[in-house]
Design a protein around this nucleic acid. Structure first.
Lengths: 350, 350
DNA sequence: CTGAAAGCGCTTACAG
DNA sequence: CTGAAAGCGCTTACAG
């Protein structure tokens, strides 16, 4: 096992070939700076001798650019990777980065108490997604590198949003087409204090600038108000994490209310919540939509590839990712971009 | 907007404070190399002056380590990010990397014809997942850095697997408990030539060392053989991509066969395939399991959080990721690790 | 415990 | 078109 003690460097290769390091570098990076013949010679010898091309670490130090874009997810990576909406966003980002020869570094805003790991500073730009993270996190990022916020705003930085309030208004208004007797709302991470269950007057709700879920709630309440339901008339439950396991107990509590108290319309802040409600309702023999109507938000595939199909708002999370990535790479000017959504009428709330 | 033209460097900070660059570096990296008092002074001044800590690019060049681990996915990133099994694997990897202060660089083996982008060489180690990629891709990775293969083998490198053949045998044997009249198998990316539909004798099947799906098929066929079904008795269909959209037409073709030809047992190579079959069967009014029994493979949440629950094999993809990450970081010795699976009996094949 | 110095592997003006 | 040289920002023996 007398394997070579270290990787071959550009300098080694140049010496081997009797050319300058500049020529080798140019052979890899700037074809116009040397004769095609020499370039061909250098590249084929590199291949033959096992030189893999300029080292990324050295190159990035020298040029100041790494061709790496970091995505900082407000939630844990475990949650985000298994969430359909976050996954779609990442797909959109990855699609654009790939096409431009860039790669994706995944970071969680929650991972270390120490904040974002130092290796984050290697990235050429940052996409920050999700709940408004602590400003400290943002301050710890290297300044003067492009940053795009998705689903929230950071002062003086670009952002990508969907029209949460109008979309929520539209779907709630659709649901009001058949007047519910007992409408209710299930929100997501909306209370200042953790609350996985019924929201009481003691709870403080986060403001719209902190979380998109508030904007959606405001849309629902606007439509409800137009039909004579005040906020006091409409019970609200809150979910702490957008997963089946965390949703299920809260929804069980709602569905297990006595018949005369059980809501007949559930406006859910996400498809995951609505799908959990649908599963649990089916398990209890409740008929959807006859006994219980349900609406979601997001338009994830799982809600559309089943019967009954979920009535929901489709947001194009893939496109959100593409837009953010284009701004980071400078393919589009930094801006505050608002994407439209689409109302999907399924069978859970016809 | 007379903002500082460039980021402050360690050297700048050292000059400001009248200490050597070594002391500043040690303040950040080796607390034992200087007095607590000086360290405290340096760190607080760094904070005050806006020095964010040593630059990751320079540090990684100097030390040769980046604290970045690359995951190379055989499929496209778009596919992988939206696939439950791949997402779980990534979760497990991310969990371990996070805990060790490392971060995750996502690469696709399919992204560029040019092969893995040069920035890959920044990673300290590589986890390669999925179908056996071209050996060229592996050869292009920097040698002498740790590499772990997941779900396939690379000579002289560590690997993580589940016991595909025995697990497939076990679930098929369970299904044989009630003798089917017309069993069939739906495979996944198993033919040398692309084939999204019925497999004919002309098709060449990939060998088990190239893809885990072959090992699963072998397990099914072994159990079927024990019950007197030869390979010729059992029709097989192949799916090219493990997504609803690609599965649906093939499954529709199967379910729309005349009653006397339609299989009454579908052994599916993945949960995604089985769930698609379940959805389409329900849409056609076929009763599961009375008219059609179904088994999956993977044990993804979506199959367990619905009624009827999928009968399937649960593989712990999160743990697969953890094991691979531990090997990469040197927390566990490189080895060939085989994880066990668990038979989950749901209602689709009681 | 501190400081001066070498060097990680590359890219890029610049002079020829 | 080619080559000699500076320097990206750091870490780390090493001498004091």
């Amino acid at each position: 096992m007398a394997s070579p003690p270290r990787r071959m460097t550009l300098k080694d290769l140049a010496q081997h070939l009797g050319v300058s390091t500049a020529s080798v570098s140019n052979a890899f990076n700037r074809p116009d700076q040397l004769s095609p013949k020499l370039r061909e010679h250098i590249l084929s010898e590199a291949q033959r001798l096992g030189y893999q091309g300029p080292d990324a670490k050295a190159r990035s130090l020298r040029t100041g650019r790494s061709r790496i874009v970091a995505v900082i997810l407000a939630e844990s990576l475990t949650y985000s990777l298994n969430d359909a909406v976050a996954s779609e966003l990442l797909s959109g980002i990855a699609e654009v980065l790939d096409a431009q020869g860039h790669t994706l570094l995944l970071l969680s805003g929650r991972q270390t108490p120490a904040g974002v790991p130092g290796s984050a500073s290697i990235a050429d730009g940052f996409i920050v997604y999700g709940l408004m993270p602590s400003l400290r996190l943002i301050a710890d990022l290297p300044p003067q590198r492009p940053l795009v916020a998705v689903d929230f705003d950071i002062e003086e930085h670009a952002s990508v949003h969907v029209d949460n309030e109008p979309a929520a208004y539209a779907i709630a208004r659709h649901a009001m087409g058949t007047r519910p007797r007992r409408p209710a709302v299930i929100t997501l991470r909306l209370t200042e204090q953790p609350c996985n269950g019924r929201i009481s007057p003691e709870h403080t709700l986060l403001p719209a600038r902190r979380t998109i879920t508030r904007a959606r709630l405001d849309g629902y309440l606007r439509a409800l108000a137009e039909h004579g339901f005040t906020r006091e008339d409409v019970p609200m439950w809150n979910i702490e994490e957008n997963t089946f396991d965390v949703c299920a107990p809260v929804i069980a509590e709602i569905l297990d209310l006595p018949d005369e108290e059980r809501p007949d319309l559930l406006l859910c802040l996400s498809d995951r919540i609505a799908l959990t409600a649908l599963t649990l309702a089916e398990a209890r023999g409740l008929r959807v939509p006859e006994d219980l109507r349900l609406t979601g938000f997001d338009g994830i595939a799982e809600g559309q590839y089943r019967a009954p199909r979920l009535t929901t708002v489709r947001q194009d999370s893939v496109e959100k990712g593409r837009v953010a990535a284009r701004m980071i790479l400078g393919l589009a000017p930094p801006s505050s971009c608002l994407l439209n959504t689409e109302l999907l009428i399924g069978e859970t709330c016809p």
